[in-house]
Design a protein around this nucleic acid. Structure first.
Lengths: 190, 190
DNA sequence: CGATTTTTTGAATCATATCAACGTACGTGG
DNA sequence: CCACGTACGTTGATATGATTCAAAAAATCG
């Protein structure tokens, strides 16, 4: 049984004891080493990963051969390449552990079987997607309506602890500017 | 019966004749005049709108009192403020028709009832959210990895017809730059 | 047709990138 | 456990893409 995940699901839908057991039977617990990849560009994404412990990033390599971070994956959140999953096509991105991590994999083929047995999960995942969509839309709003400096300060205010956890250049990449610029922002008195 | 929507649903899940009828019974057809709003900031979003005909935009007013377009809604696509719907909170944005339009409203309270009667719809909406999420994530990739000019040319190549349908300054807003800059891009020889 | 909305153009300015060099920290093998 | 190499962070000078403000020109609408 995986209490972290079951607790998370419990916030959105109600599962019986038996359903909880069925859910856990369809998952695979994976220990991931720092810097290890769960997904590499070119592969079809195996399924959805629930982060029990640790911190992951999803990124792609752009035309200038720079890494561009699309998203971070933290405790009690899902991470996957939904595009690759939905269309069963090779991914364009990478998912990598930034710290030693523990994740639960819900393999895509198990997902389909599981959703038939526990239909509430369809609802749970619909809500997860809705939340992810809203968050991403909001991020676009920030990108367009705030300067890089504002966005940086906003992020630091919201997630000061998280910023400590990752190298600065990764945060710069996520926020959409260069590490040099970020260094200047930090140097600047507020 | 609303064939456009039923066709669309049919691409993702299978509904019986009777289920199709039930779905349509929970919808409200609305004729929307040009410039009319389906949602105003401060209101709780009424539900999901399926665009049968016409073109809508979802936008917010930023700190500098400029309109920032978050998304367009075209034929055979859904538009709504998911944040407002999910959390039943007042919206921060507007949804407005750019042309005389015809939309189907699935009111939020009907949605819940309907999903119980036709569980495949939960799956259908899960997929809609997943598609929307992927599209928005991809948009962030474009914003970070392409210059404004590249993004403009990319958009024009993908959706030349759509670009004709809306004022330039709205496309500029969607792409994240000023109308003046867009005018200069157009003036420039390719 | 006049009124409003949308697009264009010019000049000045600003935010951020780029390139390059140097400083620091950190983890890995000897 | 130290030393070395690599990864990460800082700083300065210069370049550039995009914004701003202002005004005129063009298109659209009732």
């Amino acid at each position: 049984m995986y209490p972290e995940l079951l607790d998370h699901i419990g916030k959105y839908v109600t599962l019986s004891q038996q359903e909880q057991t069925v859910v856990c039977q369809h998952l695979e617990l994976k220990q991931v080493k720092k810097k290890q990849h769960l997904l590499q560009a070119g592969q079809v994404c195996q399924g959805n990963y629930f982060v029990v412990k640790g911190c992951l990033r999803q990124y792609l390599i752009n035309d200038k051969l720079n890494e561009q971070i699309i998203q971070f994956g933290l405790e009690n959140w899902w991470i996957a390449d939904q595009d690759s999953l939905l269309n069963q096509k090779p991914s364009q991105c990478y998912i990598q552990a930034l710290e030693p991590a523990e994740v639960l994999l819900l393999p895509e083929k198990n997902r389909k079987i599981l959703f038939e047995q526990v239909p509430q999960l369809e609802s749970y995942f619909r809500i997860m997607m809705q939340i992810a969509f809203v968050a991403t839309q909001r991020r676009i709003g920030f990108i367009f309506n705030m300067s890089d400096e504002e966005r940086y300060r906003h992020f630091m205010k919201l997630y000061p602890a998280f910023a400590q956890r990752i190298p600065q250049y990764m945060l710069a990449s996520y926020l959409g500017f260069t590490p040099q610029f970020m260094s200047r922002l930090r140097a600047k008195k507020v």
